[in-house]
Amino acid sequence: MEVTAELGDITLVEVDAIVNAANSSLVGGGGVDGAIHRAAGPRLLDACRELRASTLPHGLPVGDAVATPGFHLPARWVIHTVGPNRHAGETDPELLASCFRRSLDVASDVHARSVAFPAVSAGVYGWSADDVARIAVATVRAWSAATHDGAGVNRVRFVLFNESLLSAFRREVGPD
């Protein structure tokens, strides 16, 4: 599996699926979540509300993931995952790893071959860029190895919105 890190706007990336650092309510928010909802258009919120009315009446649990169409995004799919919030006492690295692993499981289920991730839980959820990068890259590589080189997902792009996140991810991804 090809794993890269780049500076950019995840809402503009041409991949099969982008991952949304969502909140458990799935109804949009700030940061990456708000940007994805704005770029995808109002039908994304409708799709999320439908999930809440049907299969996720209590919201999406931390560490889990679910897909919706991408609507107005270049990506066909949005995979929503809820990262752990260190400020709320969610400090187990396995919860963070689960976000990346479950997102890849869902990507595989919808037959996505390329996936773009943000730095889930970095920033407002209190996880350091270095910790998120280390856990994310290791989890993606372990998932790829465990699923016989990606089970269809053959490219992961970490699309970061600032230089400090990019630096942390580039250290973990290694040389191009």
Results as ranks from 00 to 15, higher is better:
S121C: 05
P118W: 01
R101I: 08
I79C: 01
R134N: 10
I79M: 01
V110R: 08
A112Q: 04
G83A: 02
P69Y: 14
A122M: 03
R76Y: 04
E90I: 09
A67D: 12
A122S: 09
R101G: 05
E90P: 04
P57T: 12
T139F: 09
E94I: 14
A122D: 01
D130V: 12
H111V: 13
E94K: 13
T81N: 00
R134I: 09
P69D: 15
W77H: 07
A65N: 10
S103W: 05
T81E: 03
P69H: 12
A136I: 07
G126V: 00
F100Y: 12
S114H: 01
V120D: 03
V82Q: 00
E90W: 07
A65C: 14
G63L: 11
S98W: 06
H72Y: 15
A75K: 01
G83R: 01
G83Q: 02
I135R: 04
P74Y: 08
V132G: 03
I135P: 04
G126F: 03
I79V: 12
A88K: 14
D64Q: 13
V82E: 00
A122I: 01
T91K: 13
G126E: 02
F71I: 15
Y125A: 00
H87C: 06
L104T: 08
E94N: 14
N85W: 04
T81K: 01
L95T: 06
G59K: 11
S128E: 05
T68G: 13
S128N: 05
V137T: 11
D92K: 08
A97S: 11
V78N: 00
D109E: 15
F117D: 03
L56A: 12
E90L: 10
D131N: 08
W77V: 02
A122G: 01
D64E: 12
L56I: 13
A97I: 11
R113G: 08
A122K: 03
S103K: 06
L95V: 08
R86W: 07
V66K: 09
H111F: 13
S103T: 09
I135K: 05
D92L: 11
R134D: 13
W77Q: 02
P93I: 08
R86A: 13
G63E: 09
S114W: 02
A97M: 09
T81A: 03
L60C: 14
P57K: 15
V124G: 00
F71T: 11
G123T: 02
L73T: 06
H87W: 14
P84N: 04
S114P: 00
A65Q: 10
D92N: 12
D105S: 13
A136P: 06
